[in-house]
Amino acid sequence: LKGYACRHCFTTTSKDWHHGGRENILLCTDCRIHFKKYGELP
C-alpha cells in the first residue's frame, strides 16, 4: 500500500500494516510483532 508509514519506526515499506500499540497507531509488521511479543515497541 502506498502512502502508509509506520508511526513508530517511520518505514514506508512493510509487507502488511496493522493498528496496534497502546494508542492503536499504524504499525509496520516488524513493530507489531515486537509489540505482541514484548508488550512494548522496539
Results as ranks from 00 to 15, higher is better:
Gly21Asp: 05
Tyr38Gly: 07
Arg7Ala: 15
Asp30Val: 08
Glu23Arg: 05
Gly39Arg: 09
Asn24Leu: 07
His19Asp: 06
Ser14Glu: 06
Thr13His: 12
Ile33Ala: 15
Asp16Pro: 01
Lys37Cys: 08
Ala5Glu: 14
Phe35His: 13
Leu41Asp: 05
Thr11Tyr: 01
Asp30Arg: 08
Tyr4His: 10
Gly21Cys: 07
Asp16Ser: 05
Tyr4Lys: 07
Thr13Ala: 11
Ala5Lys: 10
Leu1Ala: 15
Pro42Ala: 03
Ile33Ser: 14
Ala5Met: 12
Leu27Ala: 02
Ile25Cys: 05
Glu23Leu: 06
Asp30Ser: 10
Thr29Ile: 10
Thr13Val: 09
Cys31Ala: 00
Tyr38Leu: 09
Tyr38Gln: 11
Cys6Gln: 00
His8Trp: 12
Arg32Thr: 10
Ala5Val: 12
Thr13Lys: 14
Glu40Arg: 08
Phe35Met: 08
Asn24Met: 09
Ile25Ser: 07
Leu26Thr: 12
Lys2Cys: 09
Asp16Cys: 01
Tyr4Asp: 12
Asn24Trp: 07
His34Asp: 04
Lys37Met: 10
Trp17Ala: 07
Leu1Ser: 13
Leu26Arg: 06
Glu23Ala: 09
Thr12Ile: 15
Lys37Glu: 12
Thr12Leu: 03
Gly3Trp: 03
Thr13Pro: 02
Leu27Tyr: 04
Lys2Ser: 12
Lys15Ser: 08
Gly20Gln: 07
Leu1Gly: 14
Lys36Met: 10
Thr11Arg: 05
Tyr4Val: 07
Gly20Glu: 11
Arg7Leu: 11
Ser14Thr: 06
Tyr38Cys: 15
Leu27Arg: 01
Leu41Asn: 03
Leu41Met: 09
Asp30Met: 08
His34Thr: 06
Lys36Cys: 09
His34Gly: 07
Cys28Met: 00
Leu41Gly: 05
His34Trp: 13
Asp16Trp: 01
His18Pro: 03
Ile25Ala: 09
Ile33Gly: 15
Gly3Cys: 06
Tyr4Gln: 05
His34Tyr: 10
His19Phe: 11
Cys28Pro: 00
Leu27Met: 06
Cys9Ala: 02
Asp30Gln: 11
Gly20Val: 09
Gly3His: 11
Cys28Gly: 00
Gly20Arg: 02
Cys9His: 01
Asp30Lys: 10
Ile33Lys: 13
His18Asp: 15
Thr12Gly: 04
Cys31Gly: 00
Ser14Asp: 11
Cys9Ser: 03
Glu23Met: 07
Gly20Ser: 06
Asn24Val: 04
Ala5Ser: 13
Gly39Trp: 04
Lys37Thr: 12
Cys28Arg: 00
Thr29Val: 08
Asp30Asn: 10
Thr12Cys: 04
His8Val: 05
Arg22Cys: 11
His34Gln: 10
Gly21Ile: 01
Lys15His: 12
Tyr38Lys: 13
Cys9Val: 02
Ile25Pro: 08
Thr29Ser: 11
Thr13Glu: 14
Glu40Pro: 01
Gly21Tyr: 01
Leu26Met: 14
Ile33Pro: 02
Lys36Asp: 14
Glu23Lys: 09
Ser14Arg: 02
His8Met: 03
Trp17Gln: 06
His34Cys: 15
Arg22Tyr: 15
Ala5Trp: 14
Leu26Trp: 07
Arg32Leu: 11
Trp17Thr: 06
Lys15Glu: 13
Ile25Gly: 05
Thr13Asn: 12
Ile33Arg: 14
Gly20Lys: 03
Ile25Arg: 06
Asp16Leu: 02
Cys6Trp: 00
Cys9Thr: 02
Lys37Asp: 13
Leu41Trp: 04
Phe10Lys: 14
Ala5Asp: 13
Leu26Val: 07
Thr29Asn: 11
Lys37Asn: 10
Ile25Asp: 08
Tyr38Phe: 11
Pro42Leu: 01
Phe35Gly: 04
Leu26Glu: 08
Tyr4Ser: 11
Cys6Leu: 00
Gly21Val: 06
Lys2Pro: 03
Leu27Gly: 01
Ser14Lys: 11
Cys6Ser: 00
Arg22Gln: 14
Gly3Asp: 14
Leu1Ile: 15
Glu23Thr: 10
Cys6Arg: 00
Ile33Asp: 15
His34Arg: 05
Gly21Ala: 08
Cys31Ser: 00
Asp16Phe: 02
Glu23Cys: 08
Phe10Arg: 13
Thr12Pro: 04
Lys36Arg: 13
Cys6Tyr: 00
Leu26Gly: 04
Tyr38Val: 14
Thr13Gly: 09
